[in-house]
Amino acid sequence: MSQKILVALDGSAGGKRALEAAVKHAKLTDSELILSYIIDWTPYSFHTPEELEERHQRRESEIQRANESVLEPESRALKGSGLSIQTVVRHGKIADTLVDIASEFNVSQIYLGRLGESRLHSMVFGSVTSALLQNSKVPVTVVP
């Protein structure tokens, strides 16, 4: 049974490098690739009533943008590689959502690019990468 490898993309160069590494890994182990795009979102934020009303349309367009500008081009580019590819777009806290997707799809390895979070940012908001490393139940590869 083939394994599954989850790659976190965000449209950045780091994400692209993570994908390259993951592709190599997948080819060697004949694994399936799951390309994901997580839109940072929390259910505990505060909005004006007008924002609540627009939320649904905005969500649709965020998902569309993630698909059109990141996931579809990448999976198209990998078409010739013979790898089997799935894509997932989801809203949520990035680290938690990756952990959830990993268990949902029975993933054996997660790849992500380094996010280049500044020290101050990590101090205030916590680092996504270290949160993922702490919580993930499968090996995580961080690509610089």
């Binding site: 839109i39 979102w41 259910p43 909005h47 609540l52 649904h56 969500r59 949520g92």
Partner: peptide
């Protein structure tokens, strides 16, 4: 608390957000 929230509809207005908005009014 989100116990009944389907992760596939994440990104829609959460119950917490609806409550917070109505309370601040």
């Amino acid at each position: 608390r989100g116990d009944y929230a389907d992760p596939n509809s994440n990104g829609e207005v959460s119950h917490f957000q609806a409550l917070a908005t109505a309370v601040s009014g």
